[in-house]
């Protein structure tokens, strides 16, 4: 028996909206500790990793680990039927479920929707991602980072991110010309302006903006985003989902041939 009830169902809707351009189908692994999901884009350049802790749910029960293979497109269709204020409950009684039940309830419990989504059997192509001590970590407004990526992607397809003790520089070079945006440490008490740099080792890495713009669809999940980098490592972009878990994106760098 597996049942997970999320009080703020809108979070689940936002998560699916944030990943639906990147991955087509995912395996959600349910265990006693919560839900986890890892999936790569078709080119194996980017990866999304979701972890939702059981104590972030209103109700959570998972008698034994199960894997739920979902088509993101079909999941989206079902979640469109959930109101932003609804609670969302996922449920199945089977051990090897062939479908997953969804219940959407409005606040007054006066409207209850029930859907059953057919499950897919997907071979898991999961990667072992070691816990990394990143040498450059940038915490900043997710809206601001999203804006920087959008603005720079009109000049070039790739952005070079260079960190130093007191600032991070986003540089682009394209046919029309070049440009850079430098953001300094800023302990402002306004979320949108605050920038926290923890630079043990400066890095200079280049990434495809197309993927960063896809990751930034998660901006509605958290007002802050963290960029985690080490030389010759994929970038890890993390959106923490308050007291529920986190949505992480990994992106392989571009390097000179």
């Amino acid at each position: 028996m597996f049942e997970a009830k999320l009080q703020q169902g809108v979070i689940f809707k936002k998560i699916v909206d944030a990943i639906k351009d990147l991955v087509k189908s995912v395996n959600i692994d349910a265990s006693t500790s919560g839900l986890s999901m890892q999936a790569m884009d078709s080119a194996h350049v980017a990866l999304v990793s979701l972890k939702l802790n059981e104590n972030g749910f209103k109700d959570y029960r998972c008698d034994r680990p199960i894997t739920l293979g979902l088509s993101i497109e079909n999941l989206s269709k079902i979640l469109k039927c959930a109101g932003n204020d609804d609670t969302i409950t996922l449920q199945t009684d089977e051990e090897e479920p062939s479908s997953l039940k969804f219940f959407f309830e409005n606040q007054q419990a006066s409207k209850i929707s029930e859907f059953s989504l057919n499950l897919m059997s997907l071979d898991s192509e999961s990667l072992g991602i070691p816990d990394t001590d990143y040498s450059s970590v940038i915490q900043m407004s997710s809206a601001e980072f999203s804006r920087i990526c959008k603005e720079l992607s009109s000049i070039s397809e790739t952005v070079e991110i260079e960190t130093s003790k007191e600032s991070v520089k986003f540089s682009v070079q394209g046919d029309i010309g070049a440009g850079s945006i430098t953001v300094k440490n800023n302990q402002s008490d306004k979320d949108v302006d605050r920038v926290d740099l923890q630079i043990d080792q400066p890095v200079k890495l280049t990434f495809a903006l197309r993927y960063l713009n896809m990751f930034n669809k998660a901006v509605s999940l958290s007002s802050t985003v963290s960029l985690n980098m080490s030389e010759e490592n994929p970038l890890m972009v993390e959106y923490k989902i308050d007291d529920l878990g986190s949505l992480r994106f990994y992106l392989a760098p571009k390097i000179s041939d």
Binding site: H44, L127, I129, P234, S256
Partner: peptide, 14 residues
């Protein structure tokens, strides 16, 4: 021109 790397070059399967 910079070449796009793949994640498999940094992380091992499963």
């Amino acid at each position: 021109q910079k070449g796009q790397q793949l994640l498999n070059e940094y992380y091992n399967q499963g």
